[in-house]
Amino acid sequence: MMKGNTRGTEAADGKGSGPGRFLIRARADTNIQLGIICILIIILMTALQPRMFLSSYNFESMAFFMPELVLLSIAMMIAMLTGGIDLSIVGVANLAGIAAGTLFGFLAGEAGVGGLGTGAVILGVGVGLIVGVLAGLVNGLLISGLKITPILATLGTGQVFIGLCVVLTGGPAIVGFPSGWTWIGNGKIASIPVPFLLFVVLCVALALLLERTSFGLRLKLIGTNPKAAVFAGIRKGRMILWSYMLTGALAAMAGILLSARVNAAKSDYGSSYLLQAVLIAVLAGTNPAGGRGNVLGVALAVAALTLLATGLQMMRVSNHLIDFVWGAFLIAVIALNSLSARKGL
C-alpha cells in the first residue's frame, strides 16, 4: 500500500472512521464555519472598502471568475476522496483550452475564427472534454494499473500535459476564439452570468453524484479504508480509474471556462490555481488521506477565498503577498484541523 496514505490515515484522527452520524455532523460543522467565515470577510471588507466592495460590479465579476476555481477545486477534492491527489489539473485545463483553440484555428483556416458557428463551438467543447477524460484515463491507469503513487504520477503527467501545450502553441498564447466560445465565459442568460449558471448546475449534479449514489459512497469507502472496500466487493482499480476521469473532465471544463473568459489559451495560465485548489479542498474539510469531502464545502471555501482575495486586491496588496497569504492560510488550516482533532479525541 501507499505509505503516505497509511500515515495520513493515522493522522486522520479517527474522523474518517467514525460512525456515519458523526461524519455528517462534522461536515455540517465545517460548512457552517465556512459560511460564518464568508460573512465575516464580507463585513470586514465592507467596513474597509464600503464603496468598492459592495458594488454589484464586484460581485458580478466574482460570479464570472469563481466557477473555474470551484471546478478545479472539486476536481482536486474528488481525487482526494480516494486518498489520492491530482497535480496535473492545471495542465489538463490548459491543454483542453489549447486543443479547442488549435481545432478552431484548423477549422477556420485563413478565414479567421470569427466566422465559426455554434456547431464548431460544440465540437470544441467536446474535444476539450475528451482531452480531459483521456488525460484522467492516463492518470488513472498509472495510479491503479501500475500502482504509482498519485503524487508522482500526476506530477509527471502534469509536466507532459503542459509540455504538449507548449508543443501545440509553440510557446505564445492562442488569442482569439469564436464568439460562441467567449459567450460561455462572458455571456449572460436573464442577467445571470453563464459561467455561474454552469457552475450551479454542475455543483448540484456532482453533489447528487457524491452524496446520493452508490458511486459516491464507494469512492468514499475506498478512501476511508481501502482494504475493507476491497473485501466489500468494490472494484477498487476501476473506481479509481473512473474518479480520475471525472477529475480530468472537470479540470477540462475549468479550462474551457478559463479560455472562454479571457478569450485566449496558454501553457502557463492559472499556475497559481494548483495551490489554491489544494488549499480550498483542505479548507472545505476534505481529508487528503481520503474518505471525506463535499461539494458545498468546496463552493463555500472558494467563496470565502475569492471574497478575501478581491478585498485584498482592492486594498492594493501585491499579488506576491496574496500568494504568501494563501501559503500561510494552508499551513494555518492544517494546524487548526490537527489541533481541533486532538482536542476532540
Binding site: A11, I151, P288, N319, H320, D323, G327, I334, S338
Partner: peptide, 27 residues
Amino acid sequence: IIHKFHMIPLIVTLGTASLVRGLVLGG
C-alpha cells in the same frame, strides 16, 4: 509542521513554498 501536525509532506511543502516565494517577492 509535518511532524507536529502529521500532515502529508506534499501539502505542507506546497504551502511553505508559496509562503516563502510570496514573502521574498512581495517583501
